[in-house]
Every structure is written in C-alpha cells, then in structure tokens.
Design a protein around this nucleic acid. Structure first.
Lengths: 120, 120
DNA sequence: TTGACATGTTGTCGTTTTATAACATGATTG
DNA sequence: CAATCATGTTATAAAACGACAACATGTCAA
C-alpha cells in the first residue's frame, strides 16, 4: 500500500463520527466489542463491527483476542504520522496566514503584526 | 452545521488524494480552475470541479471570481482547527504510548499486552 | 457584436459505504 | 457435553461518492 493509499484510508476512517466516537471510547483503555456496542445503542452490532474493521484497516485499532472476547486497542501512531506529514505543515500555513506572513518570498519581510485576532 | 458535521466534511475532504493534491497546488498561491485542470491531466475538468466543490464546502478553498476566471485560494484554518481539537491530542497520546506512559490512570488495570510485538 | 474561452449546471452510471438481517463459529460454564 | 454468550461471516438494500458527457452561461477581445 502506497503512502497516499494509507492517507486515504486514514482520513476516511476519521471521516465518520461513529468511528471518532469509538476512538474516544478506547482512548483511555481497550474495550471489548460488546462494550462498544453497549455504548453505541443507536447502532446495530454488525454496523459497529464494520466500523471497527475500517479502523483496523487504517491501523488505528489493534485487536487482541482473549478467549471469546475481542479487545480493541487504540493505536494513535498513524494519527501522529499524519500530523507530522500533513496536518502540521498546513496548520503552520494557517498560522502564517493569520500573522500576515503570506509573502514569504520577500527576504526582509518585517514581522508585520497584523490586526489582533480576525477569527479562529 | 454541528461541529461533528464539520469534522465529517473536513476529514472526508482530506480523504481523497486528488483533493490533497489540489491543496498542494494552491498552497503557495491561488490558481485558476483551468490551471488546476491542466495540472491534473488524468482527470476530466468536471471531476476537478467536483473536487473543488467538496473542498469549498469543507472551507478549505475560498473562491475569488475575477472576470471569467475563478481563482481558488487555500484556507488552512479548518485544518488548524482540526489539529487543535482532534489530531493534536491523539498525536500526544501516541507519543505517550511510545514513551511507555500508557498506564497513567490505572496502576495495573491494563490487560498486560502479553504478545511480544503487536504493532502492524 | 460575435466568436472563442473559462467556467457552471444537470444527469448518468458504476462503485463504495452504511446499516441491517440471517446464519455460523467458538469459547465458557453449569 | 450442551446451553449460552461473544463474536464472526455472508448477503442485501439504500445512500453517497467519483468520474464523466452533454449542454448552458458569462466574459473578453477583435
């Protein structure tokens, strides 16, 4: 799988609120599939399992089997990677825009502290 | 649009390589739709415009019309926001994992990751 | 004004995703 | 060992997505 493929899968995995919710649920410790289904009462068990499969393919969830239970662990390393290679640089770009440093081409661009806070 | 809706739209917009490519193309300055189509020769013009519409709905592209041209500007602020509220905390979580600080809250509650190396 | 150019709109079509149902496996316990 | 519980698998239908064709609009320049 190429790097771009990995980013596709990762961003798509994060692009659904149920999956982000699942990540939150296992953030402070692994949960069984049953516990996650109990927490997501609005959804069918199969649906939760499909979401877990998407998260697993994205590398965000690592599964550990203990007897007849399945413990879903969070692995945040892919998110860390995405932040370094993608989100971080663009976020820095946003800050540069906010600070009016858009014309980076100019060698002696003064700090030009623009008007305080335009928006967030 | 709720916050969760906004995250859905944003992550989904980032979840396609063509759209990430477009963001890269306008990172250092706005481009006309025609220029973007010329850079993305593999795709039909309509397809490029559809991708631009997705990016615009996500707030990542701001359009400025000049005569018969359409200049597509990058707005990285949504990415900055996502980093602050979502990516950043999870990335910190990943670093904490790397540094073996996983058992912050529970003294010995974690199910003892017995397997040698479970990482993908 | 007219013709070419840049962009916008609508509709189609196959694929993928989301949510569910029905059925199957596999472990634990009484 | 059998009943039950947690999970896995396969199939299906609706909705969303991605790519494209065909046609429409608006603008600049000769």
């Amino acid at each position: 799988m190429s790097t771009e493929d990995a980013y596709d899968v990762l961003f798509k995995a994060l692009g659904h609120r149920v999956r982000r919710r699942i990540l939150d649920l296992i953030k402070d410790g692994p949960q069984t599939t049953g516990a996650l289904c109990a927490a997501l009462t609005a959804l069918d068990r199969c649906t939760v399992m499909q979401h877990l499969a998407v998260l697993e393919k994205a590398g965000l969830v690592v599964v550990e089997r203990r007897g007849r239970e399945r413990w879903n662990h969070l692995d945040a390393l892919p998110i860390h990677d995405v932040q370094k290679r993608w989100i971080g640089p663009y976020a820095a770009h946003a800050i540069a825009m906010l600070e009016g440093m858009e014309r980076l081409g100019e060698p002696d661009a003064s700090p030009a502290r623009a008007d305080a806070d335009s928006k967030v």
